[in-house]
């Protein structure tokens, strides 16, 4: 059994680093809808890559980074209309993906596998990409921890301190987009959002410092993924939904915790 699941356990570990850091930042910055928009919009990049026959990871990274920049611009420039505009990006990205897919016969099932993902099918080269993105995330959080925290609390104050808060926010969305690309094969577009936000939502309830919130959500993310992998392996069910259901049940239980 270990031979069959060890790559996916490594993947869980690498993903849990991103879940801990980026997932926590998504929750405290209230960028859940934006993350959903980038995640679904990334389907456009996947469709485009399959159409061109180019590298899915590279093409989708560029495509989602572009979406992140557009979304950053929209939310900074039109804060009062951001929810609707976020929805538009969401739909446009998906539509682009579907159009390219219909122009690329024979790849439909490939594309579908990105929608739902399968952590058991992750390959070694995926691990390398995950590791690189983790490294970028870790270096970023070491240097930008205080800025990110201040940004989520009060962006205006950060500007007053002479820090380019808009640029920082854009960078954060680009990091989010890279995180999505690294997770898409394992988790799938549709469920990425749940897997990134649920551990952080639970962790937030039990921590007083953002640093411990990141650690705890990373650990929770790993436990859910590893647990989901083992369960889905034994019962032969799809892993991602198993992971999400486990996480959601834990979240539900954590809601009963007195604050």
């Amino acid at each position: 059994m270990w031979d069959l699941i060890n790559t996916s356990i490594y993947a869980s570990f690498l993903l849990s680093i991103a879940i801990g850091v980026i997932g926590s930042l998504i929750v405290i910055n209230k960028t859940t809808a934006i993350t959903g928009s980038i995640a679904h919009g990334s389907f456009g990049g996947i469709g485009f890559a399959l159409y061109l026959g180019s590298s899915v990871i590279l093409t989708t990274s560029l495509f989602t980074a572009l979406l992140a920049v557009i979304l950053a611009f929209i939310t900074i420039r039109f804060p009062h209309r951001q929810d609707s505009l976020i929805g538009v990006i969401w739909a446009v990205g998906m539509s682009i993906g579907i159009i390219f897919l219909s122009l690329t016969p024979g790849y439909q099932s490939d594309a579908i596998s990105y929608l739902f993902g399968n952590i058991l099918l992750v390959e070694n080269r995926d691990l390398i990409f995950m590791g690189i993105i983790d490294l970028v995330i870790l270096i970023s959080i070491i240097f930008l921890y205080h800025r990110f925290l201040a940004m989520s609390y009060d962006r205006e104050f950060l500007k007053l301190r002479g820090i380019n808060a808009d640029l920082l926010y854009t960078y954060f969305l680009i990091l989010t987009s890279l995180t999505i690309v690294m997770s898409v094969r394992a988790i799938g577009i549709i469920l990425i959002l749940a897997l990134f936000t649920i551990p952080a939502l639970i962790a937030e309830k039990f921590t007083k410092k953002f640093f411990t919130m990141m650690i705890l959500s990373g650990v929770l993310g790993f436990v859910f993924m590893a647990g989901g992998i083992i369960i889905s392996f034994y019962y032969n069910i799809s892993p991602t939904p198993t992971i999400v259901i486990m996480a959601a049940v834990t979240l539900l239980l954590s809601l009963f915790k007195k604050s």
Partner: peptide
């Protein structure tokens, strides 16, 4: 205007005033 759920202590909020470019 601020989110109250944020896991941040008083000391960390005050320190934010020392951030700069």
């Amino acid at each position: 205007n601020f989110s109250l759920d944020l896991p941040i202590t008083v000391f960390d909020i005050v320190l934010q005033g020392r951030l700069k470019k």
